[in-house]
Nucleic acid binder design. Structure first.
Length: 130
RNA sequence: GGAGCUGGCUGGACAGUCGCCGCUUCGUUUUCUCGGUAUUUCCGUAGGUGAUACUGGGUUGCGUUGGGGAGGAAAGUCCGGGCUCCAUAGGGCAGAGUGCCAGGUAACGCCUGGGGGGCGUGAGCCUACGGAAAGUGCAGCAGAGAGUAGACCGCCGAUGGCUAGUGUAUUCUGGUACAGGUAAGGGUGAAAGGGUGCGGUAAGAGCGCACCGCGCAGCUGGUAACAGUCUGUGGCAUGGUAAACCCCACUCGGAGCAAGACCAAAUAGGAAUCCAUUGGCGUGGCCCGCGCUGGAUUCGGGUAGGUUGCUUGAGGCAUAUGGUGACGUAUGCCCUAGAGGAAUGACUGUUCACGACAGAACCCGGCUUACAGGCCAGCUCCCUUU
RNA sequence: UGGGGUGUGGCCAAGCGGUUAAGGCAGCGGCUUUUGAUGCCGCCAUUCGGAGGUUCGAGUCCUCCCACCCCAG
């Protein structure tokens, strides 16, 4: 949990990918990639001063709307908490089957690890394709 | 105490941290914009125009105050409406739906009450439940026969034929099973054209009679469906299937908020008025009808994107009242999600019965399906005690 | 969110309410052949996505569920 001199931890609309074009840009020019059986992250540097997040949660992979919504909420919440450790990148999160079978706590832990892996990749390898 | 039936309610609680979306209070001048006052620039008759300062409002951003924020099924999309556009949804055909009766309702395939039928000891539950005497069709295999019945085994053979017996034989008594008569019994099948008994007969048969069942007409009760220890009448006529076509009665125009309306980069296939009414296009399958398209004149139109539609409604709650009830009426009070890649979450702690099914997307009324449990009310059956 | 469609062996599929549910590919067994290919014969569906209902009888008709696919910015 974050503590002293709290940085801004909001998550408003300018920190999301809003148009189909933004998503296509990330899919077409993926520089970073973090994979796990239950999820996949794609990322690409942007020209802004902050990271942005986009979600792809397909009905095919997670059947019930309740579980889809919860996965999206957890992803957003964890992204919100680690956003200052990431550089200016556009990130697209894709689910894979089985994510809904994890408990909320397991999902949170998994995502915290995943964001850590992404930030490490961004620092080690700031420009190259994975 | 146990087992069960019916109806209704509820769908973890509390605290903290970080966040999301509307509304709201105050502030900041962050963006854009409209106005007022003062000074002043230019053209100067009136007046117009620009700049600076002060000030008021709207809008947007940021901060801040307060308050709100998924369901009983939000689901499946199976019905019915509202709303919007197409004509104001109109006429006919075709098509679809509903189907005991009455009522409720905006409407319904829903609900309530009643009737018939079925199940249960009972409280209760289930019920596509109009018409097969308008017509057409279907019923494999088996079986004699499957819908104007039929004759395999069987029974009979009165009557007629053939034949025997006596003295004679159309007349009496047999034999035969040739014609024929039967539907009691057997057998087939899901289904075989009222049932039981008595009479009757050659054997039989509603052929006759009694009872039961059924049909028709009347009477009585009921708004009606329907009912009846009712009256008369018919020997029985009318097998099944309409979730086969169909008939009868009633209902239904089509699309859907990605409907539609407004502001509007780009691009030019345009809009209004008058004339013309043949062809083409547009709505739903078709026809009628209706609206566009064509020519002339005059100048403006609307994809990306944004705004709106968007939540106050056949709304809830309480009381009174009418009704068996669904529900209606009156009065008072309340406002209770409104996003736009899509808001309610995550984490920590405490607690208990350790938390099911599951997430609003224009809005309502139903139905159906999923569901850990918990609570309340009424009723039934069994056992025990007094 | 709304609109529409499909479901029959492992795969592709036909199927007026009526015997034991066509056919092709694949698979398995056999025959033919020295072996293989080809050809021929045989086997392979306790049930037509599931559950109820109508009917004497349902893959087919009706109702409700389940799964999958397509269309509309």
């Amino acid at each position: 949990m974050p503590e002293q001199n709290m940085p801004e931890l909001t998550f408003c609309r300018n920190k999301r990918l809003l148009t189909a074009r933004s998503y296509q840009a990330v899919f077409g020019d993926t520089r970073y990639k973090v994979a796990h059986p239950n999820l996949l992250l794609l990322a690409r540097p942007n020209q802004l001063s902050h990271p942005r997040l986009g979600l792809v949660v397909a009905k095919k992979h997670i059947r019930h709307a309740v579980n889809r919504n919860r996965v999206k909420r957890v992803v957003r919440d964890t992204f919100r908490l680690v956003q200052h450790q990431l550089d200016s990148v556009d990130v697209v999160f894709l689910v894979r089957p089985g994510m809904d079978r994890l408990s909320p706590k397991e999902q949170t832990e998994l995502l915290e690890k995943t964001w850590l892996r992404l930030s490490r990749k961004l620092q080690v390898d700031p420009s190259c394709v994975n």
